[in-house]
Computed example of a mutant assay.
Amino acid sequence: MNDSNRDMKEYIKSWGLPDCLKDCSSEYEYKFSPHGIINTNEAEEYLFDDRNFKFSIWNPSTGLALFTMDFFKTPIQYSSKNPFIILELIVSGQ
């Protein structure tokens, strides 16, 4: 793992858990790979490179991911002077 990836992982962890999980924070942690998560069909490692990354917040005791977030660079060029984020929410049936 290169320094950039390590720094990004530490940066993501520094966000802490969402407020709604503060009371049960000992049950959840960040996960940067699908291994061990039972409610996913992803077999490949999460993409984690230059400005593209994916992570989950999961419960290691149950093996269940609470949610997974994926940030990636898009090949589409937008004509905007202001930076922005496109959020795509994909809800699992589990």
Rank of each mutant, 00 (worst) to 15 (best):
K31T: 05
S61P: 00
L21I: 04
S79W: 05
Y11N: 15
I85Q: 09
E44W: 04
L64T: 02
I38Y: 00
M8E: 07
M8W: 10
T68Y: 07
R6N: 07
S14Q: 12
S26I: 08
I37K: 08
K13V: 11
V91N: 02
N39S: 11
W15N: 09
D7G: 07
D3G: 11
N52L: 12
N2L: 09
S33L: 06
D50Q: 14
R6W: 04
S14D: 08
Y11R: 15
Y11Q: 14
E27Q: 15
K13Q: 13
S25Y: 00
M8P: 01
E29W: 00
E10K: 11
D19V: 13
D50N: 15
G16S: 09
Y28M: 07
K73Y: 06
M1K: 13
I85G: 06
E45V: 01
G63H: 06
K73E: 05
F84V: 09
I38L: 12
P60Y: 14
Y46N: 06
P83Q: 04
Y30D: 04
P60C: 11
I86S: 06
L47F: 14
T74Q: 07
P18L: 03
A65H: 05
S26W: 12
I90W: 01
S79C: 04
N39L: 10
F53M: 13
Q77N: 10
F72H: 08
S92I: 11
M8T: 10
G16H: 11
P60F: 12
L17F: 12
M69L: 11
E45P: 08
P18T: 08
G36N: 03
K81E: 03
T68S: 06
L64W: 04
L87N: 13
G93M: 13
L66G: 07
